[in-house]
Design a protein around this nucleic acid. Sequence first.
RNA 1: GGCGAAUUAGCUCAGUGGUUAGAGCAGCGGAAUCAUAAUCCGUUGGUCCCCAGUUCGAAUCUGGGAUUCGCUACCA
Length: 578
Amino acid sequence: MNKRKILVTSALPYANGSIHLGHLVEYIQTDIWVRFQKMCFPKEDGHEIYFVCADDTHGTPIMLSAEKEGITPEVLIERVHNEHLRDFTGFHIEFDNYYTTHSPETRQYSEDIFTRLKAVDINLITTRSIEQFYDPVKNIFLPDRFIKGECPKCGAKDQYGDNCETCGAAYAPTDLKKPYSAVSSAALVTKTSEHFFFKLSDNRCVKFLQRWTREKNHLQPEAANKMREWLGEAGENKLFDWDISRDAPYFGFEIPDAPGKYFYVWLDAPIGYMGSFKNLCNRRGINFDEFWKKGSKTELYHFIGKDILYFHALFWPAMLEYAGYRTPTRIFAHGFLTINGEKMSKSRGTFITAENYLKQGLNPEWLRYYYAAKLNGTMEDIDFNLDDFTARINSDLVGKYVNIASRTAGFLVNYFDCQMADLSCEDAANILSQKSEEPKIPLTEELLGNASLIRTHLENRRYNLAISEIMTLTGKVNEYWDRQKPWDKAKQIDDATQKHALHMVSSETIECFRILTIFLKPILPKLAQMAEFFLNVEPLRWNDLWNTLPQGHQINAYEHLMTRIDRKKIDALISASK
RNA sequence: GGCGAAUUAGCUCAGUGGUUAGAGCAGCGGAAUCAUAAUCCGUUGGUCCCCAGUUCGAAUCUGGGAUUCGCUACCA
């Protein structure tokens, strides 16, 4: 059998803020996919699947934040790293490595890639003098977001450098009148300095990207279309060279042989995927080159938000290609999160951090399930509707799925010493079939018949359809149970036929619960773990779908697996987020 | 302004080889009582954004428009 070797990444969160529900869409989406792959291709069978991520730690905003707090950037990013990892762990995001871009490994590959791109035979790095706003008090060049001034059109004061809130005019930061620093309030001066550029507009890059972005499903169709817009058609060249350096003082990596020049944070951020993986390789003895060398047969997947498609679908593959590394197998972009149909907002209490969500006592798997129920593999935005959220969890998970175990377990415990019946016995088909007419198909068979469809949906990241299928099946199990009326059979427990039927029906239903648990496990790992304890089985993998619990297998007494959402908790969360 | 996406039941969403448009939740009416009130059966509800076109037939294809959201460009 073919051994799969897969490396998966989520985008690196910036070390300048807390993880919020918007971030979590991506990490939950990725985590579900990785857990699903690991279930299908277990390590014991020789497959290797790794999920790495890291904090994105460099740049002016980090430097300024640290200064504002009176600490060094190193102390700041160390603290934030711990917070981020705590939050991810709280939502059961299971990284193989959660590292930092401020690391020797990331420095090594940043320097390596830069040096290779700069080499005479490649020659994709150039230098150019550019003029930028400079804060003479702080003695730093300022990114656009820290520049304010008067609108060149209507003269409104204190406007940012992209557009005017008063008259709606759009312009460049350099158009602002009386530009000043949002950091020090000092009047800005313009100053010239030399920058390094990655020659993205070079014909080689343009041609390579026009091909790469369209072939082999590297991108989703909508993303590929977007790239077509940015890249232009064959013969056109709409790309600009990419400014990849910043002047000291800057928190980042100094560029080799260029004192006082640093790599722009967006250069080393994606390289952080390599750095994090390298760090994992060193600790676990994994062959890094096998995953990253040109022509590698391993698979590399990046999950990202649609806002950073530009970096991952243009700069990143071009950099890798010409620095002599492999390029990504596929890039999966997702949309943004809205809450009750609107952007997250502090004043409405919908800017909800991961920390707050957990602190208010909400179950992280509620959110995992809800996101999964909405995610569809496209770049469309998904909406977190609080009422729908409550209804769905309570109805689907507690009312339907968990209820199956809850209402069935007692019969096995009370009448059959917790033991499973022989589901393959001679009269099984007759007892278990839902229908009286032929062919008599036990319910478990029907569930298993949908396994490949559910698997395809999960593989394609159409979690919404997977959940829809799973819930249809969950409904069928409850219907089956109701039709069989085991409680009536229990009243005739002295009748051997009735007793046998009760045992068979209860066991069959538990077996259905086991199958549903496998389907849901990538989405609800903790709940699945509790279910595994209840079923008294080893951690379930995908192939266990066909390993029916044997006759005499003993389950444990049922303990409740999940509670309902109390609407008050949601309201408290909203209040706490204001 | 240009380009792209979206618009389906009260809510959240499926649905393109062109038949009488679907699910879950909510609502309404029943049944049941094994289950931490959880379940099951039945049922109400839709000019599939609007207009026009192609067709025997359009939620689905074409054109125009509206609204929302992105990206992009800002002219004279």
